[in-house]
């Protein structure tokens, strides 16, 4: 078992968002988390990555059996947690290439590994970006500045491919994508599937799961997991909607 969430209660500005969430993610598993707007999906992804401003009042998050609640976001990243943002942030003036290198070397430093040399790093990025269909011009542009929705999401996948996390959280990766961009991004994600890498795919719609086929599906409502099942659960949700779960949890 890679990740274990135990009875997690989270508040933001005195408002309860997560309400006794329990979840386990196995090594190499791709788990989809579905749920209506406001069910706490994005909060959950931020809490995993260690964003400030969330008050954890109860419960624990265990990675390899150890609590990560006290770890800063960069320490979590070094342990292999990666969040692909729903709304990737623009960093003006910082070339994507520079950003990638700073991030990778920072993680390696935290893990006590040596920094990549410039030629090795360039080789790594060239190979990785070629596989994902990311152009050299893209690497020179400032991080996410002036990127289309599709380019932003692809940039997240590129970062994931370079950083090679053990646990990737994809937060509404499908939002804002047309069908072509969705296919390209999904292919990139599927390429990164491995028995060594777990993924949490957070989505509102079933559509994404046609391309990234999950091992398990969890339904979230009002800050808890209310139902878990196989990939067919996603289809059932698509047909019947979330209403039954929102009522149940009420």
């Amino acid at each position: 078992m890679l990740l274990e969430i135990k009875n997690l209660h989270v508040e933001v500005a005195d408002k309860k968002i997560l309400n006794g969430l329990n979840l386990t993610i196995e090594k190499g598993q791709v788990a989809a988390i579905m749920g209506p707007n406001g069910s706490g999906k994005s909060t959950f992804s931020y809490v995993l990555a260690g964003k400030d401003a969330y008050n954890i009042t109860e419960g624990d998050i265990l990675l390899d059996g150890e609590s990560i609640l006290e770890l800063a976001p960069d320490e979590r990243a070094a342990k292999g947690i990666f969040l692909a943002f729903q709304y990737p942030v623009e960093v003006p003036g910082v070339a994507t290439m520079t950003f990638l290198r700073t991030a990778l070397n920072a993680q390696r430093k935290l893990r006590g590994e040596g920094e990549y040399s410039t030629p090795d790093f360039i080789k790594l990025v060239r190979e990785t970006s070629a596989k994902l269909g990311v152009s050299q011009e893209h690497l020179r542009r400032a991080v996410n500045v002036g990127f289309s929705g599709g380019e932003k999401k692809r940039n997240e996948i590129l970062q994931m491919a370079i950083l090679q996390p053990r646990l990737a959280i994809l937060d509404e990766t499908d939002s804002g994508l047309d069908i072509d961009a969705l296919k390209i991004v999904s292919e990139g994600v599927n390429r990164l599937r491995s028995p060594e890498r777990s993924m949490i795919v957070i989505t509102h719609y079933q559509r994404l799961l046609n391309y990234i086929v999950p091992d398990v599906v969890h339904v979230m409502s009002k800050g808890r997991v209310v139902k878990s099942g196989g990939k067919e659960l996603a289809l059932e949700l698509e047909a019947k909607g979330y209403a039954q779960y929102t009522d149940e949890a009420a």
């Binding site: 964003k51 800063a72 969040l83 943002f85 942030v89 910082v94 950003f99 700073t102 920072a106 993680q107």
Partner: peptide, 29 residues
């Protein structure tokens, strides 16, 4: 912005590394 710093930190950079990166981007011209 906190969002920019968190974005960088979630990629493994310390608070100082993240600030330096953002500032260097700001002054690049």
């Amino acid at each position: 912005s906190e969002d920019m710093l968190f974005y960088c930190r979630s990629r493994g950079m310390s608070a100082e590394e993240a600030t330096a990166l953002v500032v260097n981007g700001f002054v690049k011209d």
